[in-house]
Nucleic acid binder design. Structure first.
Lengths: 184, 184
DNA sequence: GTTGCCATGTAAGGTGTTACATGATTTA
DNA sequence: TAAATCATGTAACACCTTACATGGCAAC
């Protein structure tokens, strides 16, 4: 149900089409969804049906009609209520940990290269987050407070990725330096 | 497909029934799955069918038979291959950020209480992770290296939750202290 | 005497991803 | 001439969760 409110949130910024929203989500490193058409278009139809968004069709020449959705008063209320809901705890789901958990099956060299791969992957993601943070594109900053909040979100992401990187490097170092940890 | 390897991983530790695995996952704060019967029992049947696990039925009196699964050589190979696979990047999915992102709709007081709720939720989770870490229950520690790896995983989790807590407290403070950030 | 543990499993539904389908216009 | 962009949408499938069903035994 949450992708519905992500979409509604963007509509609260400005009227948009499904295509617009898809691009925003696809361009973003920090938005976790892969922006599937299926979900976005369904969400829009759904929001329209339940009266949270209005639809206007703009005819175009040489391109398909644009279905432009805008949020209604009822939609703003619904978004407010969702925002007020008890937040879920931060996720603890990291598939790499499950790989690590059974990595005792690997040789020292294999573990080394696995950790190095992870370090590279995290480093690349971190870089992309920093780039996106500097651009601050595709993000509404209507008031000083909204600006502050969005900045706080980016800071959080970047801090977590930095922590992850430090952690991975430390683990990697300790594994290569500590003789006791060579394969059994 | 990943729950299958989580299950296979536990079987690599020692022979178990679906019920045993379910308990382990349910008892753990750090394992992200909710340990649904559906998935676990299906995974076991699946692993058995594809020759990665063997099944023995232990008859019992006064309780249902135990279907005890143990990993096969082929299973160990498959687990090794999975562990060697390129790790996915750490997750960036935190629903609270989406709530924060549109929190400009809220009054100062509402935002305050929302942040406080989040701080409490993160704090509680952190506490549970620390407890689980101290108990170190339900976790295989066969070799010094495996012990080291599992400890590294717990350290990581605890560090991320501490970071999240600090971040939330800072944001909360700044929101209450900075006059510019009162509602528009 | 109701709750909880042991132990298996099924059913239904929500959520998310990849790939497909259409069709005109612009860019390489 | 192949590809990317604009713009809508569908189909199939993978994954995950909640709740249900059974039934004996032990504890409080």
């Amino acid at each position: 149900m949450s992708i519905k409110y992500v979409v509604l949130g963007y509509l609260s910024w400005k009227p948009m089409t499904g295509y617009d929203i898809k691009k925003i989500i696809a361009d973003s490193e920090i938005l976790p969804w892969s922006a599937s058409n299926n979900q976005i278009y369904h969400a829009l139809v759904d929001l329209n049906k339940s009266g949270l968004a209005e639809k206007k069709i703009e005819n175009q020449v040489g391109a398909p009609d644009r279905h432009v959705y805008s949020i209604t008063q009822k939609g703003v209320e619904a978004l407010r209520e969702w925002v007020l809901k008890e937040p879920p705890p931060p996720p603890t789901k990291n598939a790499f940990f499950h790989q690590l958990m059974w990595s005792d099956l690997l040789s020292q060299q294999e573990m080394d290269s696995s950790m190095e791969t992870y370090i590279n992957i995290v480093g690349e993601k971190l870089f992309l987050i920093e780039v996106e943070r500097e651009k601050q594109i595709n993000i509404p900053q209507r008031t000083a407070r909204e600006k502050f909040l969005l900045d706080a979100i980016y800071k959080n992401w970047s801090a977590h990725f930095n922590l992850e990187l430090d952690w991975a490097r430390t683990v990697h170092q300790e594994l290569t330096r500590n003789r006791k940890l060579t394969d059994a």
